[in-house]
């Protein structure tokens, strides 16, 4: 076979595998969230479909597909359908730049466990997620419903505000690793757990964590779907599979956020105090272990997000804006300035 055919086949296989894993994972987070919610609220939760309710996501999927597709009479039809489609597409794209693990050797060639290692990897992800807001805005506007529009406006104002803080917190990480490539940022943290950015950049981590919590539209920042005021916000008019698409993309964004935290602040696929390269394992086994480590770390942060959701109350809207602009933004700027001074002197 010619070289480029193998290249294309490998890229295609990676893309399909990544998206498969992400979609399946997102489906199972819905189960995880409900089970943990029940645990926190001292009840059982969905446990009837299969063992521990493991078939519940499948049952939910079938239910969503079987439901009647309703399009509101006064909705702008084209945009109404575009909203969820756009949202789920944009939610999946950042995974092109996220590395699942180190390298493996397939058919005699080294394959990075990442779809593309971009020179501007993190910026690419931020840019793509910044257009994600269109999915919410279009959906909320096209529904032609006051609650949807209010939800969409709240949500997009929140996303825009916290994106700035997130970007500045990230800039400090870029300063330390000297690169925007996801892989380089992980490799810069490889030496020891004390080189993990969470210890080097504690303030930056706190700012980033709060911002990304707001970016994922989850409690305590879920004002976009404050059910007591707005029904469910921007997807009020969506039912059946279109609603499932919105919900699934929110969970994909949650996994993306957790993966970002893992790779930016918790050393990616590095195991504390263990250097995989020196253990004398074969390249493929080491690669497999790195994938498992990355998934476990990401999974832990997904759990933290669920934990926060079922523990904390919701902010008021003015509190949300004050926190973003008057507390987090100055903190992020101080952090960036301090990091820059230290990086210059050391």
């Amino acid at each position: 076979m010619e070289e480029w055919i193998i290249d294309i086949l490998i890229s295609l296989a990676k893309t399909l595998a990544f998206f498969g894993v992400i979609l399946l994972w997102a489906a199972y987070i819905t189960l995880g969230e409900r089970r943990f919610a029940s645990f926190f609220q001292n009840r059982l939760g969905p446990n009837r479909a299969g063992i521990f309710g493991l078939l519940q996501p499948l049952a939910d999927g079938i239910k969503f597909m079987m439901k009647e597709e309703i399009i509101p009479k006064n909705a702008n039809r084209a945009f109404y359908l575009l909203g969820p489609t756009l949202f789920i597409t944009i939610a999946l794209i950042p995974w092109a730049a996220i590395p699942f693990g180190d390298t493996v050797v397939i058919a005699g060639r080294e394959v990075k466990l990442q779809i593309v290692d971009l020179n501007v990897g993190i910026l690419f992800m931020i840019a793509v997620s910044s257009i994600g807001v269109y999915g919410i805005m279009i959906g909320g506007w096209a529904s032609n419903n006051k609650y949807s529009l209010l939800g969409a406006i709240r949500s997009s104002a929140q996303l825009i505000s916290y994106e700035i803080t997130m970007g500045i917190a990230l800039a400090a990480v870029f300063l330390l690793s000297g690169s925007l490539s996801t892989r380089d940022i992980i490799i810069a943290q490889m030496q020891s757990p004390w080189h993990w950015n969470v210890f080097v950049q504690p303030l930056g981590f706190i700012v980033f964590f709060v911002s990304i919590l707001a970016e994922t539209n989850r409690v305590p920042f879920d004002l976009a779907e404050a059910e007591s005021e707005l029904i469910v916000g921007y997807h009020t008019e969506y039912g059946a599979f279109k609603f499932a698409m919105y919900m699934l993309s929110e969970y994909i964004n949650l996994i993306t956020a957790s993966a970002l935290i893992t790779l930016l602040y918790f050393g990616g696929w590095g195991i504390p105090f263990v250097d995989l390269g020196r253990l004398g394992l074969s390249v493929n086994l080491a690669g497999l272990i790195s994938v498992i480590v990355f998934l476990v770390k990401t999974g832990f942060f997904v759990f933290v997000f669920i934990w926060i959701r079922w523990t904390l109350p919701r902010f008021r809207y003015d509190q949300l804006m004050n926190l973003g602009w008057k507390i987090l933004l100055p903190l992020a700027l101080v952090n960036l300035f301090g990091t820059a001074v230290v990086a210059l002197l050391v």
Partner: peptide, 27 residues
């Protein structure tokens, strides 16, 4: 790539969001 990403981030992701935001608010 850098200019490309900044183009999306600034124009599509920030400026146009604000403009469409205003259009929607004015309905």
């Amino acid at each position: 790539q850098f200019i490309a990403v900044i183009q999306v981030l600034v124009y599509a992701g920030a400026i146009m969001v604000l403009i469409i935001f205003v259009i929607m608010l004015l309905n």
